[in-house]
Write a protein that binds this DNA or RNA. Structure first.
Length: 757
RNA sequence: GCGCGAUUAGCUCAGUUGGUAGAGCAACCCAUUUACACUGGGAAGGUCGCAGGUUCGAGUCCUGCAUCGCGCACCA
C-alpha cells in the first residue's frame, strides 16, 4: 500500500491547539511544576489523604544531600536531583509512600570564607573589624539569599520533593539535634577536649579535619646537617635531614630505627647543644619503629609540636613538646634573627647560619606532597592546640556486640561488612574500609564564627578553678554572666552527620521518624563518601542503633566535554538554568542520565543535551500523530487484536518489564537509553510508519486494532518516561485519551497496567 | 609504597549470569509540501590496551604488564 491511497487527513479540529506547534519547554515546564505543587502530591501525607497511596503502603524515603548555601547550583547538583527524582517518581507511581526531603547546608567554613572575601573586597574589612554579631548578620543574609536561589533552581529541575518538610543544617530543629547529640556523646565520654596536633590553616585561622586537606606535589629543598657542637665542643654525632630547618629549634630528640646498627651506640644518650642559631637544644637519641632506615640519613630530628608523626614519637618516649611556631606561621623562639619571623624567612636565616657554621652537609631537591587547606588554599601548619575531638576508638558505654564492646569505628564498619548497607558500585567498599582503618580521632572544633556554637560553658576559665558545663541549653544560673560559652563552632560535617534523622524530627520521637527511618537510598557523589556517608552511618548507629539507609548510590563527577572539571576560570561550565531555558530541564535530565554509569565520571555537552531536546520534540509529534489519526477519544480495546499488534503489545510488555528491572537495580543509564531507543526507533520509526497504510486502509478490524494499540503504546511511553522527563510527559498526559483524569505523577506504574491489558 | 577505576568504531560511551561486537554524535550516500528537518532511509566504520592462562567457546573469568585518572599513606 502506498501513501497516495491514504484517505484525506481527518479534520485536525480535535487536535489540541498547542500540539500543532513544536514543543516549547520554556513555557511548559514552570507551568507543570506549579500544577504539581498545587496538587500537593509531593507530600506523601496528601497522597494518602487523596486516596492515591494506601495508608499502609511501604515507605520509600530519600533525604536530599543539602547543597551548600555558597552560591548557585551546578551540573553536579542537577545530576543529583535528576537521579533522585527518577527514583522518587518511580516509587510514587508504584504506589509507595514516597518522601523526598529537600534542604540546604550552612557549610560553615565555605560560606564564611565566601562572605569574608566579599567584605574584604568591597569594604576592605575583616570579620574582626565587624565583630562576631555584625559579621554573622552578614553571613545569614548571604545564606538566606543563596538559599532562595538554590530552591528556585531545584524547582526548575523538576524535583518532586516535599517542600513542606524542608530543612536547613543550621535551623532551630537541626540546632537542637546537634546540641542533643553533642551532650550525649560528651556524657558517654566520646567527645573530649585535649591538646593535640591539629591541622592549622594560617590563612583561614582555623583548624581543619584530616579529610579537608588537599595534597599538592611540589619540589622542596631538603637539607642534611648536624645541630652543632655540644657543651664539650664535640660535634653532634648524627646528621639529620629536613625540608623545614626553621622547625628544628623545637627539636627535642633524634629518632633512629631500633635495628639500625649505625646508631645503636648513641641510643639513650642526651646531648646539650648550647647554640643552634641562638637557641639552646637538648636532644635525646631514641629508638623508634616509625623511622625508616633508608630515608635520608636514617635519623629523624623529632619536632614534637609541629609534626603528627613526631608528636606520636614524643608521646611514646615521654619527650618534651616545645611549640616554636604560632597561629600566624611565625617563629615564637630565638633571638632577633628569627623570632617573630615568618617560617619561610626563618628557614633562610637558619640555612645561612648552618652554612656559615659548616654544619650543612648536603642540599637536594625532592618531590614532596604539601598539605593545603581545601577551602582557603593555605599551607597547613601542624600545631598543638586545645581542641574538641570525637574518640573513634573508645568503647561506647552500654554498647556491646557478640560480647565485645563497640567503638564508633565498629559502628561505621559493621553495616557494610554485614551487608546491611550496600554501596553502588560495590568496589567503593574497599576504599571505605581502608579509610576507616586509617581513621584518627575527629577534630570537631573550628575557630570560625558561622556554624553551631559548641554547647559548652566555662566558669573561671583558664584558672585552676575552671568549671565546665555541657548542656543542650545554657546553664540556668547565669545571672551574673559567670558562665561564658566556648568561642568555637562545630565542624559543618557534625550537623551533616545527623542529616538522615535530624530532618525527620530527631531528637523528638516524631511520626515521620517512625515511618520513614531508616531511609532507603542515599544518592551522592563519591567524593564525600568519607566526609559524609561514613559520618551518617556513625551518628545514626550511635544515636538510633540502626542504619541511616540501606543503599548508597554514588554518582560520578559531571565534567565538561573536554573531560576537565567545569570551572569558572576555564569557562567550560554549563549552567543548569541555561540548559533549562534553552533546551528544557527534561532534555538536561536525560542527557545526564543516558550513558552515565554509577560511580563513573560523565561528560556533558550542549550537543548531547540538544539530542534530547530533539527527542522531546519527537515525543511531542508522536502524540500529535496518534491523536490526529486515532482521534481525541479513548478507544476501547478490541476483543481481538491483529496478530501483528498482539506481538507488538507483548514486545512492549517485555520492554517495560525490563525497564522496571533496570530502575529497581539502579541502572538508570540503561533504563533511560532503552526508553529512548524504543520510543524513537521502534515506536516512531517502525510502528508508526507501518501504521500509516493500516489507518488509511479499508480493513476495519486491522484499523481498530492498530488505533487502540497506538493509543496504548503512547500511554505506556509517557508512563515509562515520566520519571526521566517529567514535564513533557505530564503535559502530554493532559492532552491524550486515557481512562482516568489523574495527573501522570500519580498514575500507576506498569506492574498493574500491563497485566490488565 | 598500598588500593580503586578506566582502556571497545574518528569522538562520547553501553555491553548485568562467558555464547556471532552495540548506541548516540561526527563523517558518507539517498530522500524531501511526510506527525516531525528538532526529519526519514541506507551503507561504512572495531585483532574490544598488550602478553599469557582457564574453557568447546573470553570484551566478559584468572595472572602479569603498560598508559591515563582517582583515593589513601609517606612527606625527616
Amino acid at each position: 500500500m502506498s501513501d497516495e491511497k491514504r484517505e484525506p487527513l481527518p479534520n485536525p479540529a480535535h487536535i489540541p491547539e498547542k500540539l500543532l506547534k513544536p514543543y516549547d519547554p520554556t513555557e511548559t515546564e514552570p507551568r507543570i511544576y506549579k500544577l504539581w505543587e498545587e496538587s500537593g502530591f509531593f507530600n506523601p501525607d496528601i497522597c494518602v489523604e487523596k486516596g492515591i497511596t494506601a495508608p499502609n503502603a511501604k515507605p520509600f524515603t530519600i533525604i536530599m544531600p543539602p547543597p551548600n548555601v555558597t552560591g548557585i547550583l551546578h551540573m553536579g547538583h542537577a545530576d543529583m536531583i535528576a537521579l533522585e527524582d527518577v527514583m522518587i517518581r518511580y516509587h510514587r507511581m508504584k504506589g509507595d509512600r514516597t518522601l523526598w526531603i529537600p534542604g540546604t547546608d550552612h557549610a560553615a567554613i565555605a560560606t564564611q570564607s565566601v562572605v569574608e572575601k566579599e567584605i574584604l573586597k568591597k569594604e576592605d574589612k575583616s570579620r574582626h573589624d565587624l565583630g562576631r554579631e555584625a559579621f554573622l548578620e552578614r553571613v545569614h543574609a548571604f545564606a538566606k539569599q543563596s538559599h532562595d536561589t538554590i530552591v528556585s533552581q531545584v524547582k526548575v529541575m523538576g524535583a518532586s520533593c516535599d517542600w513542606s518538610r524542608e530543612a536547613f543544617t543550621l535551623d532551630n530543629m537541626r540546632s537542637l539535634a546537634v546540641r542533643t547529640m553533642f551532650k550525649k556523646m560528651y556524657d558517654d565520654g566520646l567527645i573530649y577536649r585535649g591538646t593535640r596536633i591539629v591541622n592549622w590553616d594560617p590563612k583561614g585561622q582555623t583548624t581543619i579535619a584530616d579529610d579537608e586537606i588537599v595534597y599538592e606535589e611540589r619540589t622542596a629543598r631538603m637539607y642534611t646537617f648536624r645541630y652543632g657542637k655540644d657543651e664539650n665542643g664535640e660535634l653532634f654525632p648524627i646528621a639529620i635531614s629536613t625540608t623545614r630547618p626553621e622547625t628544628k629549634v623545637g627539636d627535642t630528640a633524634v629518632a633512629v630505627h631500633p635495628s639500625d646498627e649505625r646508631y645503636t651506640q648513641y641510643v639513650g644518650k642526651t646531648y646539650k647543644i648550647p647554640d643552634f642559631c641562638g637557641v639552646p637544644l637538648t636532644i635525646k637519641i631514641v629508638a623508634d619503629e616509625a623511622v625508616e632506615k633508608d630515608f635520608g640519613t636514617g635519623a629523624l630530628g623529632v619536632t614534637p609540636a609541629h609534626s603528627m608523626a613526631d608528636w606520636d614519637i614524643a608521646e611514646r618516649h615521654n619527650l618534651p613538646k616545645i611549640q616554636v611556631i604560632n597561629e600566624f606561621a611565625k617563629l615564637t623562639i630565638g633571638d632577633e634573627r628569627i623570632i617573630n619571623k615568618k617560617s619561610t624567612v626563618a628557614r633562610e636565616v637558619i640555612v645561612e647560619w648552618l652554612r656559615a657554621e659548616g654544619l650543612l652537609e648536603k642540599e637536594e631537591d625532592i618531590k614532596q606532597n604539601i598539605s593545603t587547606a581545601e577551602r582557603t588554599g593555605g599551607i597547613i601548619e601542624p600545631l598543638p592546640k586545645l581542641q574538641w575531638f570525637i574518640n573513634v576508638n573508645k568503647a561506647i558505654p552500654g554498647r556491646e556486640k557478640n560480647g565485645k564492646p563497640q567503638t564508633l569505628k565498629d559502628i561505621m564498619r559493621e553495616p557494610l561488612a554485614d551487608g546491611k548497607i550496600k554501596i553502588i558500585p560495590d568496589h567503593f567498599d574497599k576504599t571505605y574500609f581502608h579509610w576507616i582503618d586509617n581513621l584518627r580521632d575527629w577534630c570537631i572544633s573550628r575557630q570560625i564564627w558561622y556554624g553551631h556554637r559548641i554547647p559548652v560553658w566555662y566558669k573561671n576559665a583558664g584558672t585552676p578553678n575552671e568549671e565546665i558545663f555541657t548542656g543542650i541549653e545554657a546553664p540556668s544560673e547565669n545571672t551574673n554572666n559567670v558562665w561564658t560559652q566556648d568561642e568555637d563552632t562545630l565542624d559543618t560535617w557534625f550537623s551533616s552527620g545527623l542529616w538522615s534523622f535530624s530532618t525527620l524530627g530527631w531528637p523528638e520521637k516524631t511520626p515521620d521518624l517512625a515511618t520513614y527511618h531508616p531511609t532507603d537510598v542515599l544518592e551522592t557523589g563519591y567524593e564525600i563518601l568519607f566526609f559524609w556517608v561514613a559520618r551518617m552511618i556513625m551518628m545514626t548507629g550511635y544515636a538510633l542503633d540502626t542504619i541511616p539507609f540501606h543503599t548508597v548510590y554514588l554518582h560520578g563527577t559531571v565534567r565538561a566535554a573536554d573531560g576537565r572539571k567545569m570551572s569558572k576560570s576555564l569557562g567550560n561550565g554549563i549552567n543548569p538554568l541555561d540548559v533549562a531555558r534553552d533546551y528544557g530541564a527534561d532534555a538536561g535530565r536525560m542527557a545526564l542520565m543516558v550513558g552515565a554509569s554509577p560511580g563513573l565520571d560523565t561528560k556533558i555537552s550542549y550537543d548531547k543535551i540538544k539530542g534530547y531536546k530533539n527527542f522531546a520534540n519527537k515525543l511531542w509529534n508522536i502524540a500529535r500523530f496518534v491523536i490526529h489519526y486515532t482521534g481525541a477519544d479513548l478507544i476501547t480495546k478490541p476483543a481481538e487484536l491483529s496478530t501483528k499488534d498482539a506481538i507488538l503489545l507483548a514486545e512492549s510488555d517485555t520492554l517495560f518489564a525490563e525497564i522496571t528491572k533496570e530502575i529497581e537495580e539502579y541502572r538508570f543509564h540503561l533504563a533511560s537509553e532503552k526508553l529512548y531507543a524504543y520510543v524513537w526507533h521502534n515506536f516512531a520509526d517502525i510502528i508508526i510508519e507501518e501504521s500509516k497504510p493500516i489507518l488509511g486502509g479499508n480493513d476495519t478490524g486491522a484499523h481498530a486494532s492498530r488505533a487502540w494499540l497506538l493509543q496504548e503504546l503512547l500511554r505506556r511511553s509517557l508512563i515509562g518516561l515520566h520519571p526521566f522527563m517529567p514535564h513533557i510527559t505530564e503535559e502530554l498526559w493532559s492532552l491524550i485519551p486515557k481512562e482516568s483524569d489523574n495527573l501522570l505523577i500519580v498514575t500507576k506504574w506498569f506492574s498493574t497496567e500491563i497485566s490488565k491489558s
